[in-house]
Design a binder for these strands. Structure first.
Length: 211
DNA sequence: ATGCGTTGACCGGTATG
DNA sequence: CATACCGGTCAACGCAT
């Protein structure tokens, strides 16, 4: 910042040969007073600069707050959109799974146990959401806390499948399966089963691990 | 001490002969 | 029907905090 320098030493260039002692004393007092006033002026200038800096900081803070509010608003809108997409894809995947997959045509995923067709009750089937996430995206940052409880190598895929349980609420029934895609190893396939029976602990916050 | 990840064992449903 | 296979879960163990 531009700051003015104040020279506190003053050369009065006086010829003091003809002056009395009292005059010298007065001049010295005057000199001291002048120096003091320069000091005071410098202090005032410094205080003014601090006030200006504080005003700028307050303005900047206000701008940042407005930006944060906008970001938060957009985040909420995006989140709502993602949830809508996840729900619509869940609806379509659950119907396509019944017809396209040989095995799933004979069995349904229902909570922790697979059950036969006879036991399937349409309304009791947990919501299943399948999403594909690239490395570095929110694979493990979906806002919930997950605890890994198993890992298994699955047929037709060299990469193991990891099993997670929602650990935020002890009774939360939601499970999550994460597996690298066999076709594109940079893509994770994340399958959510069920619905959370609690609020999201902290949107976007990193989970215990990736979860 | 507590919580978490790893991993082999186990269980139950399905496919196959 | 017997059995192999498969996906999902359990639980012991070790590690990190």
């Amino acid at each position: 910042m531009g700051s003015a320098n104040y020279d506190s030493s003053i050369n009065l260039n006086l010829s003091i040969g003809s002056l009395q002692g009292s005059d010298i004393l007065r001049i010295k007092q005057l000199h001291d007073a002048t120096q003091q006033s320069f000091h005071d002026a410098a202090k005032l200038q410094k205080a003014d600069r601090s006030t200006e800096e504080m005003r700028l900081a307050v303005e900047e803070n206000g701008r940042l707050k407005r930006m944060l509010a906008i970001i938060r608003e957009r985040h909420c809108a995006l989140r709502a959109q993602v949830l809508r997409l996840m729900r619509s894809s869940a609806a379509s995947s659950s119907t396509s799974m019944r017809t396209s997959n040989r095995k799933i045509g004979k069995q349904e995923i229902n909570g922790s146990r697979r059950v036969s067709n006879r036991q399937v009750v349409e309304d009791s089937r947990p919501r299943i959401v399948k999403i594909y996430v690239r490395d570095g995206d929110l694979v493990m940052r979906d806002g919930y806390y997950w605890r890994k409880y198993g890992q298994k190598v699955i047929r037709d895929n060299p990469y193991p499948r990891a099993y997670f349980r929602c650990s935020f609420a002890p009774l939360c029934p939601v499970k999550k399966k994460v597996q690298r895609s066999a076709e594109d190893k940079s893509v994770h396939v994340v399958i959510y089963e069920g619905e959370h029976n609690h609020v999201q602990p902290s949107p976007g916050k990193p989970l215990n691990y990736m979860t």
